[in-house]
Design a protein around this nucleic acid. Structure first.
Ligand SMILES: [Mn+2]
Ligand SMILES: [Mn+2]
Ligand SMILES: [Zn+2]
Ligand SMILES: [Zn+2]
Lengths: 125, 125
DNA sequence: ACGTTAATGCAACTAAGTTGTAAAATTAAA
DNA sequence: TTTAATTTTACAACTTAGTTGCATTAACGT
């Protein structure tokens, strides 16, 4: 079970993801919301929104956690099996709307794949 | 410039990678070497061995750094563009000796790709 | 309006990784 | 073999992301 009560904090975090296309790191969110809410609250709201299939998360190239809007996921099924791209100059992260086939590996059961592409974005080229 | 002097600590870390097939996390190494050397030393030796193309590193599913032997890399060129597999039951991590084609993305320059497959290993199935 | 209980704030904590520096170890030269 | 230059190490202190416990606050069904 994720979000049960639509508090002011929850609404505010949701509005950030509604307005934004690109992914955002938890670190940036905590900084951005410093005046509005406690960092523990940010972490917990993100947890709940992810459980509900409203946002999804992944690790950037430095091991920090990033979040982005989901496209048609639900509490039961996260379908966000797309790769992500991080610019090594500006640090921006984007979801790549590309279907990726999870490679199979002999003698192992592969359940998910995290694919992180690193390079330079259009702005930084 | 990586390793310049073959100290006892360097030799010991090297011997671990010579004996071992699978990847090993820094956390595990620090624990393993607790009696032999300081954790700062572990981190710095790993840095230097990676610079020299003797080992390569990547992030596991929890954002921890893992290291594994290189196969024919040099100080100039790291060729380890293979995917990695982590078992979600036992946590073991392996290099997958599979060539992977780095997908190109419109309007962006992709320099490297980290592909992390997560599932169950042969032992845990 | 009230009562239940989810959500929040706060402080303290954990754990990975980094940094500065004095002491120790390696290596090459004398 | 001794010396001296320089790398490497230990240690302690620090930084930062993320977590936990608990008392207080706020949402919402009745
Ligand atoms: Mn995404
Ligand atoms: Mn590898
Ligand atoms: Zn950029
Ligand atoms: Zn396993």
């Amino acid at each position: 079970m994720g979000i049960v009560r639509k508090t002011a904090s929850v609404k505010f975090v949701l509005s950030i993801f509604e307005e934004r296309e690109k992914a955002v790191s938890v670190v940036a969110l905590v900084k951005l919301l410093k005046e509005k809410m406690n960092k523990t609250t940010v972490y917990r709201i993100l947890d709940r929104l992810e459980q509900d299939g409203i946002i999804h998360s992944f690790l950037g190239k430095d091991g920090l956690r990033w979040y982005a809007k989901c496209q048609g996921c639900s509490a039961d099924h996260h379908l966000d099996v797309h790769p992500h791209f991080q610019c090594k100059d500006c640090g921006d992260v984007e979801c790549l709307p590309v279907d990726v086939l999870i490679p199979s590996v002999e003698n192992r059961q592969v359940d998910s794949a995290e694919i992180m592409l690193v390079g330079k974005c259009g702005n930084c080229l």
